[in-house]
Write a protein that binds this DNA or RNA. Structure first.
Lengths: 342, 342
DNA sequence: TATTAGCACTCAATCTATTGGAGTGCTAAC
DNA sequence: GTTAGCACTCCAATAGATTGAGTGCTAATA
C-alpha cells in the first residue's frame, strides 16, 4: 500500500489539526474541515490505512488519531519543501555590532524563547578555521606570566602561567618573538605537536621553563573546551502538559538544560552535518540527546564570518508549530548575517 | 499567652515530624512520639494554643497541623543556637588550587546540589577590595587595541578597543606607563572619575584617541557587571510536590534559576549583612527574591582570601532539612578556606 | 486546676457506579 | 468506491457513598 494523494491530504490535515488542538482528531472533524467532500466513514477507512502504514496512532480504541513520529517526519518534510511561509518579524531583537559576544548570544536565546514559547539554546561560535592573530606573554609577577591569545574575530583567551625561576624581560621578549614568528597567521588545525617540539628545541637554554610556557600556550589554544552554551525559556516546557505531567521526564528535561554538556552533542551533530540545508528537524528519538524522546528539536547553523559557526536550537513538544519555528530561525539567521556584514 | 517550655517542646516535635513526613501532623502522633507522656487530648489543647499564637496552621478543619513561617522561624532559630550537629562529609568534592575559578564554582554548586537534594547556587567572588595588579595595552591590528587588566587573585579581563587613528608603538608604550603608574596597586573603589580626567589631561596631545582608550579601560574595570552566578540541581524541585504541583509556581522557580539576575539580589543582600554570623536562613517571604514564597533559602558567605567574597545558597522547600543543609554549608566553607590557605 | 476519656462532628480522600459522548469498525445499500 | 446506519468501546466527568484521620467540646478524674 502506498500513500496516494488523497491519503497525503488527509494525513496532513490530521497532523495540522492536532498541532492546533493537541487533542486526538476524529474522522468527522476531518470530513468537515477539509475540502475533500468525503464522509466521515470514508475518512475512517483511510485513517485505518494510515494507521496500518504507521503514520498515525490511536491512543486507545474509540479515540481519535494522533501523529506518530513517522507522521511528524512526513509533515515536516513536505512542509519544508512545499511551503515557504513569509518570514515573520522577530519581536524585540536589536542587534548591535559592538555588543559582547556572550551578552549577544544570551539575548538571542531569550528573544527566540519568548517569540516561540519554546525552549531555546545557542552555542558560542566555534572558530576552528580562524587564524591566530596575536600572542603575547607578559610578566605580572615574579613567578607569574600572563599569556594572551587573540584569534581572528577577536576571540580572546587568557592563561596565567606559573614559572619556577623568574624570567627577565629579554627572555620574555625572545619568547614573544619566537611564538609570533612561528604561530601567527596559522589556523588552530595547522598547529601540530611537531611544530611545538621544534619550538621547544629552538628555545634551547631555558628549556625547562620554556617547555612549561609553551605547554600552557598550547593548552590555552585548544579550542573545543570553551564551547559555551546559553539557554533560555526552559520554563516554557510547562506550557505543554505532555512534557510536564510526568515529573520524571520533566525533571530530566530541566536537567538537560541546566547541565548544558548534553546539549553539546546536539551542537556537534548539527555542525557535522555537511549537506547542510541550514535547518534540521529532529523528532523524538532522532535527536542525539538523551531525555528528549518526547520532544522535537529544530536546529540551525549560524555563521558570523568565515569559519565562525555556531548552532541554534529550539526545543519543544512534538506538536510544535514547525512552520513558525522554521520561519523564526530563518529571520534570525538573516539578521545575524547582516550584523556580520556591517 | 507565652511559649512555655512544654509548648516549645510540642512545637519543635510538630515541626520535626512534619519535616520528615511532609504530612500534617496530628495530636495523637505527638502524644506517642514524644517523651512528654501526655494524652492526645492535652496535646490538642496545646496545639490549639500554638495555632492561636500563630506558630502552626490547620490546612482545613479536621486535618493535622503544619508549621507556619513563624513556626519555621522558631525552629531554625532554636536549632541554630542550640544544636551543633557534627559536620558531615561532603561527598565527591576534591578541591584543587589550580583549578580555574569558573569550573571550580560549577563543581561546588553541583556537589552541593547532589549532597543535599536541593537546588544550589554560587556567585563568583566579588573583588571590590582587591588591588589592580597589571594593565597592558597592545596593538593587535592597525585599528584595534587590546586592553588586558589583571587584578590580585588573577582575575583577568580583556577589552578590544577600536581606534580611529593608528597609534604608533611609542604612544602605546607611553599610555601603558601612564596607566600603570596611576592605577597600579589601587582598589577598584579608589579609582574615581577625578583621577580618570586627570589622566586624560596628562595624556594631552592625542586626547581624542586617548579619551576613548581610558573610557574603555574604565568600562572594563567596572566590577559589578561580571557577577556570575552558577546554579545546579534545579531539577531537584521536582522532588517536592508542594513546589511543582502548581505549574505556574514551578515555571516561575525554574525561570528564576535560568535567568540568574534575580538571584543576584540574594547575593547582594547576603553580602550586605554586616553582622554576619556566616549563615542566614530566609523562610518564605523573607527571601528578597520574587517567586520563592514557597521556598526556604539558606545562604552563606564564603571568602577566598581578603576581599574575595561570594555567596552560596541552597534553595528548597520550607520543610527542608535545615540541620543537614547548615552542616553541609559549614563543611564546604572550611574546605574553601583551607583551599585558599594552601 | 490540670489532665484525660469519650463522643459527635468535619472534611479530604478514595472508591464505585452511572452516564454521556466522541469515536470506531463493520455491514449493507447506493 | 462511497456512504449511511448501527452496535460497540472506552475515556472523562459526575455524583454518591464510604472511610479515616483528626478536631473540639464536655464531663469525669486525679
Amino acid at each position: 500500500m502506498e500513500l496516494d494523494e488523497r491519503k497525503k491530504k488527509i494525513l496532513y490535515a490530521i497532523i495540522q489539526n492536532y498541532l492546533e488542538t493537541g487533542e486526538p482528531v476524529g474522522s468527522r472533524t476531518i470530513s468537515k474541515y477539509t475540502d475533500l467532500n468525503l464522509s466521515s466513514a470514508t475518512i475512517r477507512n483511510e485513517m485505518s490505512d494510515l494507521e496500518e502504514l504507521g503514520y498515525i496512532i490511536q491512543p486507545h480504541t474509540s479515540a481519535g488519531r494522533i501523529p506518530s513520529d513517522k507522521g511528524y517526519r512526513f509533515y515536516v518534510d513536505t512542509m519544508l519543501t512545499e511551503k515557504e511561509r513569509e518570514v515573520e518579524e522577530l519581536k524585540g531583537l536589536l542587534l548591535e555590532k559592538d555588543e559582547k559576544m556572550d551578552t549577544l548570544l544570551k539575548r538571542v536565546a531569550r528573544v527566540l524563547a519568548t517569540n516561540t514559547n519554546y525552549a531555546a539554546m545557542i552555542s558560542s561560535p566555534q572558530y576552528h578555521r580562524n587564524k591566530l592573530k596575536f600572542i603575547q606573554l607578559s610578566r605580572i609577577d615574579a613567578r607569574q606570566l600572563l599569556a594572551v591569545i587573540v584569534v581572528e574575530g577577536n576571540v580572546i583567551k587568557n592563561s596565567v602561567i606559573n614559572v619556577e625561576d623568574a624570567l627577565d624581560d629579554e627572555t620574555i621578549l625572545k619568547l614573544n618573538i619566537l611564538l609570533n614568528t612561528h604561530l601567527n597567521g596559522l589556523t588552530m588545525e595547522e598547529i601540530n605537536l611537531g611544530m611545538i617540539s621544534a619550538m621547544k628545541q629552538q628555545a634551547g637554554i631555558h628549556s625547562e621553563v620554556i617547555a612549561d610556557v609553551i605547554d600552557a600556550v598550547a593548552e590555552a589554544i585548544k579550542a573545543d573546551e570553551d564551547l559555551e552554551i546559553y539557554t533560555s525559556g526552559a520554563n516554557n516546557i510547562f506550557r505543554y502538559p505532555e512534557l510536564t505531567d510526568n515529573k520524571e521526564r520533566a525533571s530530566e528535561l530541566i536537567t538537560t538544560f541546566e547541565e548544558k554538556q548534553m546539549l553539546g552533542e546536539l551542537v556537534q551533530e548539527t555542525l557535522a552535518d555537511e549537506n547542510n540545508t541550514g535547518i534540521q528537524v529532529y523528532i523524538g528519538d532522532e535527536a542525539p540527546v538523551e531525555g528528549m524522546k518526547d520532544c522535537s528539536v529544530v536546529t540551525a547553523t549560524y555563521e558570523l564570518g568565515e569559519g565562525m559557526k555556531g548552532t541554534i536550537g529550539i526545543i519543544g513538544p512534538k506538536r510544535m508549530d514547525y512552520e513558525k519555528v522554521v520561519a523564526t530561525l530563518k529571520t534570525l539567521m538573516n539578521q545575524l548575517d547582516t550584523l556580520y556584514k556591517k
